[in-house]
Write a protein that binds this DNA or RNA. Sequence first.
DNA 1: TTGAAAGCGCTAACAA
DNA 2: TTGTTAGCGCTTTCAA
Lengths: 347, 347
Amino acid sequence: MATMTDVAKAAGVSRATASYALRGDPRISPATADKVRRAAAALQYTTNLSARSLRSGRSGVIGVAIFELDKPYPSEMSAAVSREAAAHGLETIVQQTSNSKEREISILQKVTSQLCDGTIFSPGNVSVEEITALYGGKPLVLLDDISDDPLFDCVFTPCADGAEAAIHHLYDVGCRNIGVIGVDYEMLVDDRESTSVSGRRLAGALKAFDDLGINVDERNFVHTAWEAEDAREVAHRLADEGLAFDGLFCMTDTVALGMIRGFADRGVRVPDDVAIIGFDGINEGDYSVPSLSTIQTDIPDLARKAVGLLLQRLGENADAVPDNADPAAPQRLTADFRLIQRESTRR
Amino acid sequence: MATMTDVAKAAGVSRATASYALRGDPRISPATADKVRRAAAALQYTTNLSARSLRSGRSGVIGVAIFELDKPYPSEMSAAVSREAAAHGLETIVQQTSNSKEREISILQKVTSQLCDGTIFSPGNVSVEEITALYGGKPLVLLDDISDDPLFDCVFTPCADGAEAAIHHLYDVGCRNIGVIGVDYEMLVDDRESTSVSGRRLAGALKAFDDLGINVDERNFVHTAWEAEDAREVAHRLADEGLAFDGLFCMTDTVALGMIRGFADRGVRVPDDVAIIGFDGINEGDYSVPSLSTIQTDIPDLARKAVGLLLQRLGENADAVPDNADPAAPQRLTADFRLIQRESTRR
DNA sequence: TTGAAAGCGCTAACAA
DNA sequence: TTGTTAGCGCTTTCAA
């Protein structure tokens, strides 16, 4: 592997000049710069990222830490962030936290604060306080931060507005007995949970019920893990009990698809017997039978906002004056969404 | 951020001693080691990976480079590799190549050869020769290497055997007019393609047809991109032409699910009118309607084999004597698979 | 069993 | 406009 010294020698300049030239510093003359670039190309030179990172604190790599790599929604999000970052000349590395606090800490301590210039982090089990202690001062954008205190930049999923739109949509297509799947109604009394993704979706749904003058109680809400298998069992149970709903809002598309599958097992027809709408907008919902109506989070928009916040901080850091370290206050943005009507609510 | 120097100072030892102690070197006395560990804990010390990597060439991180993060099969594979690597104390970072040669090169040059101790790489557009020039000498395990010349360790998807089993399964459930979706029959005459994933699946299918005494010609093979949307259109076309098949083997589950969706659009019933079997075994196929029969690649097994090969090379490197650099010959393993019968071939 | 010292490859202040 | 030089934090000989 050729090093900067090799390139400098080959080009007949000093290491510093070579370094400046390769990074396009304007004070190097075009002729010299060209000579250096030629030598670098000939030697197949690539910057050693460890060395650059050690010296300058910059690697040109950003990190994404998500729950699970093999779940559709986080996957699609990571892919979108990768594409967005690539458009800005940054490499993206993705890691999965596996919903394990230990893994979150390890990622935050090792990869994030070491190899990456900044990280987009989806916190699961780690608190904002712990993040603060571990993140190493590098720019950090949280996804769906549940703390009241905005210590970090954050991008939110459009939970409340999306859920509200979902309930209105079910109402608009004629549903009058609407159930919500995947949320604990008890959560309402628990303040800590109210800022979580499910808490905010619940709040949006409740607002819609209120606006529509629909009375709901705990019987309208069925708690379940956000997994297809659990949802499938809920559908079995609802069907076996004699379906009390003509419309269901599922907290995620995966839950919705599990419900559709479970209803198919019991001969309950969607949307004829019960309309179903999900949340997320994963690709899969376009090819299910029936295809799935959903509140689609605008994932490219989310990626644009998250990467944008990161770039902003990276820009700040570049100009950072140590003794005037007064960073801008953390920003909180919310991704766009759109209602997509497909077969599962076509009636 | 506390450095090794801080820890050494706090523990009252030299930097070298601290370094040895933290890595559990046996020549440091238990008392000293304990003192150092205590100091490190108190200071929340974490090794600077850039520095370690720069100095020792080891970071404890392995890389996975796959086609797309938001496709189910590569996602599930990356997740499995992450879990397997974590069990061996390694961090895993995942990158997507986006099927772009430029991105593959960038990943190989920058992240792989710099930040990672080794990489599991799924080559798309880059040739083995180019990989050789770029990978930087670090251990590299290829996924489905298409070159005849085994220059690197490699794990294969069980293409030929799996495809063979798929055709036999369709035959066993009574199909006598079997089509294969997603492969170019012309490929047979093109040697370069015969070692590709689709080439090997085609070869397996042909062997099965031959064993079963079924004559096939180009009309039994329908070429399409491995995307749900393209497959859906193929299904429309086949249905509109008056379905000539009673059984279809699709080159991937995504293609199969797209076909199922396309047939649903046209009122063709699966499996009654046509049985369908896919390949991959993605989670999604368990919840589709109808659920999808498939040749499921044993992804945990694949991950175990890939990480195992990497660990083996990493072990070799550790003991590597520079002037006796005679590495073991590249190994080629194939992942297990199993036939999963679900509704789409239940007849 | 521990310490001193060199240096991985790079960047950035400072000099020329 | 270019060169000299001092490290970033760590590991690893070599010496004690």
